[in-house]
């Protein structure tokens, strides 16, 4: 009697657990669908003709005759290759400078003692909450004065030295025990060597996180290039794509093909680095 009641209770508990699992998967699948359907739609539309894109009855994901030549045509309709070149150049230089200078400065803030340390760090912190849009106009005037208007160099200066990068790296370095550096100092290592031989190899998660953030934000930046880069040969892929959409607003297939192409690099970078990502966010104090 007692036994059956117990097993009944156990069974109902198990059933509730299974129901819960099913519920969780249902929610997950729904959210995943919301997240991924626009991308699938993009892929599908990129191989359709303009008429097929909006054909609903019947709706097909892959048209009978896929228009793969959308992916060829887009390169000739706009100077896409030039745009890609510019964007790749900018993104790589900015990401490299950002990683190098931020980790360099962060090492000093996290592991060295020196005069005016707090004041200098405060200067960084105070600007984190300051939206770039607040000072983009005076910044543009200054850059124009320096002769940087319509130069890719302006975009590099703009994006390579962020307070965010220093902050992120510093948080991570503070989690590395100071004894490591002390021991190295006693062994007679210089600070530069400690940075290069001990700290950098340990900071893969933080560097990956910062790489994803910098790469994504530089690759996808729109307002910065819009303000600075005026001539067509200087434009980035975002500006170029937007220009194309403005000019040929009903060439849906081509727009989607260009969009797919513009996504590929960021997605590759993200997929390569994502295994460090959650760890990186956790250890850089980004979670607060």
């Amino acid at each position: 009697m007692n036994q059956t009641a117990k097993s009944k209770k156990f069974r109902s508990k198990k059933r509730a657990a299974i129901l819960g699992k099913v519920g969780i998967y249902a929610i997950l699948l729904l959210i995943t669908a919301c997240m991924i359907v626009p991308f699938l739609w993009m892929l599908s539309a990129s191989i359709k003709s303009d008429r097929e894109v909006f054909q609903m009855n019947p709706f097909v994901w892959i048209p009978e005759i896929p228009k793969w030549d959308n992916y060829i045509k887009i390169w000739t309709k706009i100077p896409l290759l030039k745009f890609v070149e510019n964007t790749v150049f900018l993104t790589i230089v900015v990401t490299f400078l950002q990683l190098l200078t931020s980790s360099f400065a962060a090492y000093s803030f996290a592991k060295l003692e020196f005069k005016h340390k707090n004041a200098l760090f405060l200067a960084y912190i105070a600007t984190i909450a300051m939206p770039w849009q607040v000072y983009m106009v005076p910044q543009f005037i200054m850059m124009r004065q320096m002769g940087l208007n319509d130069k890719l160099l302006a975009m590099i200066c703009l994006q390579a030295f962020s307070a965010f990068g220093v902050f992120l790296m510093k948080q991570f370095y503070e989690g590395i025990p100071g004894e490591l550096c002390e021991a190295a100092r006693i062994d007679g290592m210089s600070e530069y060597k400690i940075y290069a031989k001990i700290m950098l190899p340990l900071s893969k998660p933080a560097l990956s996180t910062l790489t994803i953030f910098t790469f994504v934000s530089t690759w996808n930046d729109y307002l910065g290039p819009l303000i600075y880069l005026k001539s067509e040969s200087k434009k980035t892929i975002q500006l170029g794509l937007k220009m194309f959409i403005g000019q040929y607003s009903s060439e849906y297939g081509l727009i989607m093909a260009g969009s797919v192409l513009s996504l590929i690099p960021v997605i590759i970078v993200f997929l390569c680095l994502q295994k460090y990502f959650v760890e990186g966010v956790a250890s850089t104090g980004l979670k607060g």
Binding site: L100, T101, S102, F104, A105, Y107, S108, F109, L112, E113, F114, K115, K117, L120, A123, Y124, T127, M130, V134, Y135, M136, V137, P138, Q139, I141, M142, M143, C157, L158, A160, F161, S162, A163, G165, V166, E191, Y195
Partner: peptide, 26 residues
């Protein structure tokens, strides 16, 4: 101090010129 500043300088100079000064200017 000099060693510490040499670590900070590459970032800080860029940061000061392209962020701090424009903010004051704004």
């Amino acid at each position: 101090d000099l060693v510490a500043y040499s670590f900070i300088a590459p970032n800080f100079i860029g940061f000061a010129v392209f962020t701090l000064i424009p903010i004051l200017f704004a």
